[in-house]
Simulated assay, not measured.
Amino acid sequence: MAQQHLDPTDPTARSVTGDALAGYLRGQATEFLRALRLHRETGNGQNGTEDSVDAARALRHSARRISGSLHTFRPLLDADWSEAMRPELAWLSGTLALEHACAARLERLLLALHRLSGSTAFPAQSAASAVGGRVTGAGRGVPAPAGGRAPGTRPAVAPTATAERGNLTVGAAKAGALLERQLTLARTRAHSSALQALGSSRFHAVADKVAVLASEVPLTPAAAGADLRPLAAAAGERLTDAVAALPLVTAGHPYNAEALIHGLSPDTAPHPQD
């Protein structure tokens, strides 16, 4: 059954009171507990299944939504409980988000590298391994000796694979290989940190509090008749002001645009700003 989300910003809706907030928090706490049970049933080892990854993602989403609601509507909740709960939920959602952030960051950076170098597609790592080439620190391609790599060399995309990398230069290929190596390692470490967090006493304490929240929401006495829409509108205004303060208009050129002249791209024409 699809969950109905709290939407106190709907101008056509009737007054949204603390009862709606309580129902929403109970629903998110239930989703949290359901995801936790699924994560335990599907396995939480280093080689977890796709279901366990989805369960961890659902845990992160529920924790973030509960934390965001506690922040937005904190005047209507017990202050001591809310202030103790929010940092723990932020810790949990942040820890679980690291692995996904590394994968997303790798994809964004590789796509940006393609654009800078004028390539239409980035060759897969497996293709580079199949070729078996090596690129030295000076950027010259030398074949790998039988039984091992040449001294002082690093694995990278072979410069002979021009059909797959289009206009990708040797320097850009080396940068892509370095990005993939570093962020894959970071993703592995983030996965291990998430598993450690989910097995820690700190997480079990958070889960116990969420279990209580699933049946009892500590609202203040004034919350029963309070309208949630002004608090939601205030949060929206803070977000709008924060976006307006970003220096997107004043940034006239892509970061480190002069690198285009030094080997990343055969075309030095300005690229659209990201």
Rank of each mutant, 00 (worst) to 15 (best):
P254A: 07
A130W: 08
V212M: 08
G133N: 00
D19R: 15
R60C: 04
A20P: 04
I261L: 13
T9H: 10
T188Q: 12
L183G: 03
A257G: 04
G137M: 11
L70H: 08
V142C: 01
R34N: 14
A244N: 11
H5M: 11
A244V: 10
L76V: 05
A197W: 03
S215Y: 12
A186K: 06
R74E: 14
P123K: 01
F73P: 06
S15L: 15
R34W: 05
A163W: 04
A194V: 02
P270Y: 06
L264K: 03
G94K: 04
D80S: 11
A163I: 09
S82D: 02
G45I: 00
L33N: 04
H204T: 08
V157Q: 14
R34L: 10
S192Y: 03
A233E: 15
S192M: 05
S93W: 14
K174N: 09
G176V: 06
K209Q: 13
G147F: 00
H100G: 08
A269C: 06
H5C: 08
R108W: 05
S15A: 14
G147L: 05
L228G: 04
S82R: 15
G18A: 01
A104T: 14
A222G: 09
A257W: 10
D7W: 07
M85L: 15
T17D: 10
D19S: 11
A156N: 10
H71M: 11
T160Y: 08
R165D: 05
S62N: 02
A2G: 12
T30W: 02
N47G: 08
V157F: 15
R140L: 13
L219Q: 05
G18V: 03
D78Q: 05
T153S: 14
L239R: 13
A186D: 12
S117D: 09
Q3L: 12
G48A: 15
D80Q: 13
I66V: 14
R238F: 02
S200F: 00
S192N: 12
T220V: 10
L106T: 13
A257V: 13
S193V: 08
L38D: 05
F73T: 06
Y255F: 11
S200D: 07
R202C: 04
P159D: 03
V131A: 14
P218T: 03
W91Q: 12
G141R: 14
D54Q: 11
W91V: 10
A103W: 07
A2W: 01
E180Y: 07
A127E: 15
L213Q: 02
R108E: 10
L33I: 05
P155L: 08
Y255W: 10
R134S: 07
R140Q: 14
L96Q: 04
G152R: 01
H39V: 00
S119R: 06
A29D: 01
E50L: 07
A13G: 11
P266K: 07
T42W: 00
T153D: 03
L183A: 03
V131H: 14
R108M: 09
V142A: 02
A97P: 06
D78L: 01
V142L: 09
E31A: 15
E50C: 00
A235K: 11
G148Y: 04
S117N: 10
G139C: 02
H191V: 11
S69L: 06
A234H: 09
R74I: 01
G94Q: 02
A245D: 15
G118K: 02
T72V: 15
